[in-house]
Nucleic acid binder design. Sequence first.
DNA 1: CCTTTTTCCTATATGTTTGCTATGATAACA
DNA 2: TGTTATCATAGCAAACATATAGGAAAAAGG
Lengths: 144, 144
Amino acid sequence: MKISTKGRYALRMMVDLAEHDNGGYIPLKDIAERQDITLKYLEQIIPQLTKSGLVRSYRGNNGGYQLTRRPEEYTAGEIIRALEGSLAPIACIEDEPNRCPRQKECSTVKFWKGFWDVVNEYMDSVTLADLIADHQEGQDAGAV
Amino acid sequence: MKISTKGRYALRMMVDLAEHDNGGYIPLKDIAERQDITLKYLEQIIPQLTKSGLVRSYRGNNGGYQLTRRPEEYTAGEIIRALEGSLAPIACIEDEPNRCPRQKECSTVKFWKGFWDVVNEYMDSVTLADLIADHQEGQDAGAV
DNA sequence: CCTTTTTCCTATATGTTTGCTATGATAACA
DNA sequence: TGTTATCATAGCAAACATATAGGAAAAAGG
């Protein structure tokens, strides 16, 4: 039961974009260096965030990416879902065409639906602003 | 973020074993038929449950499998963990040797640890007896 | 013994996903 | 025209998921 690097890196990019927001566009190259992830891999991930309207892009010189909202207006859930798709733990509880016809007899459907609810609830209860606050705290604790 | 068939089938096997408990050993062949899963695949999954002490096996004629405790004494979490391993959503928050050395700088560790907690909390709050009760309910609702 | 029923062990196959890397086109600006 | 970016797409090795297959070993009944 793992979250792939795409979802994880997307979250880190969003935090990075928020923390280095200066009103302008931030080039992916800078994020790649700070986060220690190759530019080419991030280039493959970020289009999903643009398509989902979570960030805005601008090409050319002085181009880059920018958040479209304030950090407290994003939930971790929507960021991760933009990359991972539905967070359903098993496909058969989703809507058609994946929905399992054997649901009535199945002894575990309810359990899995409950799990899905819990997952979404947690993910959607944390905002990007919360992540930034956590990060600051972590940094402060590091400094002596 | 998916749970594999191994974890899901293991859970269904345990429910099946509990529901058809007659004091004796239940052959895997019967479970396979009832659950509509091939015997050969279940044969590959169940050894993990035996190793973890969740079920007892007996070979030969009239052999099969049997629960080692009462249904209310199992949590869904321990059953699934027996097959899936740790339910950590990302490897880097686990103990050595997977633990990430970059944890202090990382902006998302706390979030992922919190997620892991929520996952385990839910999984461990549901017992095998609960699953059986859910199942009966589902069956009753089906009958008119 | 021999047969049947079962668990147990291990190997193989096949398809999909993950996690990158690589190449180049297109846009914007100086 | 050069530089700095995003954007689009292709390729690829390794791991993982989901089985299938063949046969050994144990237990009990006849």
